[in-house]
Amino acid sequence: MDLRVVEVQPVTQPDLPSFTVAVSRNDELVYEEFQWPAMTLDWWSMLEHHPLASEFIEADWAFLMETARIHAEFWSGKMSLAGELRLREAKYGFTPEDRARLRIQFAQATSAEVESAERVSRIGSSRDRMKGIQRKDPA
Rank of each mutant, 00 (worst) to 15 (best):
T110F: 12
A107N: 08
A100P: 06
R88K: 05
S76P: 01
Q105H: 12
K91A: 10
S111H: 11
T110P: 00
G124Q: 14
L102F: 05
E73P: 00
G93W: 15
K78A: 14
I123G: 10
S116W: 08
R101A: 11
L81D: 04
K91C: 09
S76R: 11
G93H: 14
G77V: 02
R99K: 11
A109M: 10
L87H: 03
F74K: 02
F106Q: 14
E66M: 12
E115V: 11
R103K: 15
A72I: 01
R119G: 15
M79K: 07
E73F: 04
E118A: 12
Q105N: 03
R86A: 04
A109V: 10
R99L: 07
L85E: 12
A109E: 13
A82I: 05
E89F: 05
S111E: 09
R119N: 11
A100K: 14
E113V: 00
P96R: 02
E97T: 10
A117H: 00
G77R: 06
E115G: 03
G77I: 04
A112C: 03
Q108P: 01
Y92Q: 05
A117E: 06
S116H: 09
E66F: 03
A90M: 07
A90S: 09
L102K: 04
R103H: 12
E118S: 02
S126C: 08
A107F: 15
T110H: 02
A100V: 07
S121F: 10
A117G: 00
E115M: 09
A82P: 00
R69W: 09
H71F: 02
R119I: 00
T95A: 09
T95W: 05
S126Y: 07
F94K: 09
S116M: 11
A107E: 13
D128L: 00
F106V: 15
A117Y: 01
A82K: 01
S121T: 06
F74L: 07
M130H: 03
S121Y: 02
G77F: 13
K91E: 08
D128S: 14
Y92K: 05
S126L: 12
W75D: 10
Y92E: 03
S80I: 07
L87N: 07
A109R: 13
Q108E: 06
L85W: 13
R88Y: 06
Q108K: 15
T67D: 03
S76C: 12
R119V: 00
E66Q: 14
Q108Y: 13
R119L: 03
H71A: 11
K78G: 08
A72Q: 02
R127H: 10
S125C: 12
R86Q: 09
Q108N: 08
I70F: 03
K91Q: 13
K78Q: 11
K78S: 12
R127T: 07
R127D: 02
L85R: 08
Q105P: 00
F74T: 15
S125Y: 04
R122Q: 13
F74G: 01
S121K: 15
L85M: 09
G83M: 04
F94M: 14
S111T: 13
R86T: 15
E66K: 10
R88C: 06
A82Q: 09
H71W: 07
E97I: 10
A68K: 15
D128E: 15
